[in-house]
Design a protein around this nucleic acid. Structure first.
Length: 490
RNA sequence: GCCCCCAUCGUCUAGUGGCCCAGGACGCAGGCCUUUCAAGCCUGUAACGCGGGUUCGAUUCCCGCUGGGGGCGCCA
């Protein structure tokens, strides 16, 4: 297994996992699992401005939530550690010195302000900005003077000036960029921190990454990284650039469209299974008509060859549908357990005082109605509320008078109170009998009763609801509803 | 502005020269079922961006255009 697949996901610790990065992680995971390879997690935290342990945990939490476990890397150990770039500075420094010594890199003293002015000028002249290699052209004396001055400097990579940088992408085919388009990019910042493109190349090589699978927004970075890797004498990994996820307006998925973090979807009551399934289908398809996949099924069905090139709009409606599919697919016990956090947040049940049986029976009635877990509090409110307050108007049966409706409510209460057994069949027989005695259609009677015991017009089936609610609650609510209707008639 | 990439129903997509007057899914509309709402089932709606080629024949190949996207940081 010396040449087995090794892939990595390298998030920067921003506290939240962007769904685009989640999709990239998923594809890396699927590819690794399918090939029997190794899935590695590296923390790319070379931007010291934003990097705390808490931020890392936030990102890792989302990976775990999706079920993407990594074999090697941050928190899992491995032979290529440490897996946090801020702890690998010595390695980058050694490579920087090597490039400096062999002329592939040079010091640059240009200040951010100077560069900014240059960029603006280039823009004014309507041409692409490229670092003019000012500091490369310094005379030995000038260079010595700057070095003596102790002024801060960065290290720039000396990009090739001729030819082109070519590679064959696993999803997009042959790609080429003319060397004249390449800039002398900064590889080490003032202060010694490496930049993304530099640290990434070194780590991918040192961690023996065989396939770099990342978003298409990195396409140009690949053209910039290849010369660096070559200058360092590294073997190149294979590359696969994934189509971008976009907003409905086709722009790169970002803040402007609301929820973009995995955590947002968890909070909105989406199941990880649905999110994973949905993300997998954005940019990839199995070649047949299957749409619902477990993570394991994805592992065997996935293939880089079937990844698309065109960007994909992140379509909430399809996610919602898939979420419903999964909600209906899990066991009632499982669903009830998943609803608990939302119910406790809504104040409907106390975390440590949940009547599991009652909760399970109530959830069972809403299972095929819920689109998200977050809907549970509102959907189940009447099961947990001390009382419901139906609008008197809704207690009046269709095509019947207020007085007649009041009578029906009272009779229903009386008859139900006398039932020997509180079961679906007995309740149904009782109420259908009442409707028939009244000369009403069943629906005419059932709707007011539904409103009386739940407070709303859209609910699970009436008899099941009464069974779960129990006789006591049902009778109390019928009584209260009758009183409310009576009051409104006067 | 410059460079690169992409282009099938509103959306996710199948399609690799004839099987396609383009298939599936979500959505939407209608129907069935039915005590409401759902779920389920059925039916319908809707697309190959445009113009040139190549070919007996183009959604499929080539070129151009148009449109869209990404990149152009001492962010990743």
């Amino acid at each position: 297994m010396g040449n087995s697949v090794r892939v990595r996901i390298a998030p920067s610790p921003t506290g939240s996992l962007h769904v685009g990065n989640a999709r990239t992680a998923l594809y890396n995971y699927l590819f690794a699992r399918q090939t029997g390879g190794v899935f590695i997690l590296r923390i790319d935290d070379t931007d010291a401005k934003r990097s705390s342990d808490a931020d890392i945990e936030g990102v890792l939490y989302s990976f775990r939530w999706m079920g993407l476990d990594w074999d090697e890397g941050y928190g899992a150990g491995g032979a290529c550690g440490p897996y946090r770039q801020s702890e690998r500075l010595g390695l980058y420094q050694a490579h920087a010195e090597k490039l400096l010594a062999d002329g592939h890199a040079y010091r640059c003293w240009c200040t951010p302000a100077e560069l900014d002015a240059l960029r603006k000028e280039a823009q004014r002249q309507r041409r692409a900005f490229r670092y003019p290699q000012t500091c490369l052209g310094l005379t030995a004396a000038e260079r010595a003077a700057r070095e003596r001055s102790g002024a801060p400097y960065v290290l720039r990579f000396r990009s090739p000036r001729e030819g082109s940088v070519d590679f064959s992408d696993l999803v997009r085919g042959d790609l080429s960029v003319d060397a004249t388009e390449l800039d002398d990019l900064v590889i080490v910042r003032a202060g010694g921190m490496p930049t993304y493109n530099f640290a990434s190349v070194i780590d991918d090589s040192h961690m023996a990454i065989t396939h770099v699978i990342r978003g298409a927004d990195h396409l140009y970075n690949t053209h910039r990284q290849i010369p660096i890797a070559q200058a360092l004498g590294f073997d190149l990994p294979a590359y696969a650039h994934l189509p971008l996820l976009t907003n409905p307006d086709r722009s790169k998925l970002g803040k402007r469209s609301g929820a973009v973090f995995v955590g947002d979807y968890a909070a909105q009551g989406y199941l990880p299974e649905a999110v994973v399934n949905f993300l997998a289908l954005l940019g990839w398809n199995p070649g047949d008509t299957q749409e619902v996949f477990s993570l394991d099924e994805l592992v065997s069905a996935f293939s880089l060859e079937r990844v698309n090139k065109a960007n994909a709009v992140f379509d909430l409606q399809k996610l919602a549908w898939l979420n419903g599919v999964y909600i209906r697919g899990v066991t009632v016990e499982d669903l009830a357990a998943r609803c608990v956090p939302f119910l406790t947040d809504g104040g409907f049940v106390a975390p440590d005082d949940v009547d599991r049986t009652y909760l399970r029976d109530a959830v069972a009635l809403e299972q095929e109605r819920l689109k998200t877990l977050a809907e549970a509090p509102e959907a189940l409110d009447f099961f947990f509320a001390a009382e419901v307050t139906p609008a008197p108007k809704l207690l009046i049966a269709k095509k019947q008078s207020p007085a007649g409706s009041l009578g029906a409510l009272r009779q229903a209460r009386e008859r139900l109170a006398q039932l020997a057994a509180w079961e679906h069949e007995t309740i149904e027989a009782c109420l259908r009998g009442l409707a028939s005695d009244l000369g009403w259609k069943a629906g005419q009677l059932f709707m007011p009763l539904r409103v009386a015991i739940t407070g709303k017009t859209a609910t699970p089936p009436l008899f099941e609801t009464m069974v779960v609610l129990g006789r006591a609650r049902t009778l109390t609510r019928l009584e209260a509803a009758a009183a409310a209707l009576a009051a409104s008639i006067e």
